[in-house]
Design a protein around this nucleic acid. Structure first.
Lengths: 167, 167
DNA sequence: ATGTGCATGTAACTGGTTACATGATTCG
DNA sequence: CGAATCATGTAACCAGTTACATGCACAT
């Protein structure tokens, strides 16, 4: 894709992925190119600046896979998790399962922390805090349910190597 | 609270609220003080730097209320929504209802965008994208259900001014 | 006519983190 | 005896945004 394409796609999925400005996207792309993680295919156009279509290199793919699997354990960020989900095709099925399991562990930890907060507070707590904790709890439980259903399905099939099917 | 307290509280609720480093928290507190939005109560201690307990001023409370109600419509950020939830005590019940309704509208918009993405893609889509869209959809629906249940309850009671009860 | 989409890029600015400085007390 | 908690603060650094520059094509 081109930088412009990437931005468009990110903007479309803004809610899930977040987006970045061109001011940081273009320089980032230049850096990746300099490091040899992507190649550029310059396609001239009349009237417009030439489209620069980037493709990932083997080196880049390796670096990416490294990133996907580097210490998800401590790193929380929902955004990073969504990114890893989106890149599911780039890692093995066991890798994907690991991602989901790690996320599951994180959410459980998080949920326990919330419960503890709610418990400590008791009844004298302000409406705001109660609302917030309830909100967090509900969302955590929904996400857990989702993770469990996905994990169930993925663990059922005796890893068919390349025949992963999500629905 | 003191800067230290604020950081501790934010760290405890990290998942929901996020946190900030002291390097930005302390200067921020200084700025608020200079602007007269908070007062400081310096409490000397032996061995430790004196604790500086901040309290919001009337001016600060007004500015805060202004922030709570300023254009939630376009401003998406889940973090900001959680913050507004937490500050529920600082605004009227009608204000709170407005917050929830605006959030509801946002999520619906977001969900539609996701559906459209999923529809456009069809079957040839990569596993990753399908997973991500499914994830987003499930969470959006859970949050909508939560919002609806809260709104139902709040709209039921004919605004008892100060007798809001969330559970 | 005015704005939106296409398409790239740089420079100034800003808001944050990281790293440092200081120092007593308590827990394992 | 080292690590964590308490408690504040500044300076250097970094990663991002905003604003600018360029310019055609198409729709309202």
């Amino acid at each position: 894709m081109s930088g412009y394409d990437i931005k468009r796609e990110l903007t479309r999925l803004d809610w899930l992925t977040g987006t970045i400005s061109f001011g940081s996207l273009y320089p980032a792309l230049h850096a990746l190119h300099k490091e040899g993680l992507v190649t550029v295919d310059v396609r001239a156009q009349q009237g417009k600046p030439s489209r620069k279509v980037y493709s990932i290199t083997e080196d880049g793919r390796q670096t990416l896979e490294q990133w996907i699997n580097h210490s998800t354990g401590d790193n929380a960020s929902t955004r990073a998790f969504v990114m890893r989900l989106m890149l599911a095709d780039s890692h093995s099925m066991t890798g994907l399962i690991t991602q989901l399991q790690q996320r599951r562990a994180q959410i459980i930890t998080h949920r326990e922390a919330l419960k503890q907060n709610a418990g400590t507070a008791g009844e004298g707590v302000e409406l705001g805090k109660r609302l917030m904790l309830d909100y967090g709890l509900v969302l955590a439980n929904s996400e857990l349910a989702w993770l469990d259903s996905k994990l169930d399905r993925l663990l059922q099939q005796p890893l068919a190597s390349e025949g992963i099917r999500g629905d």
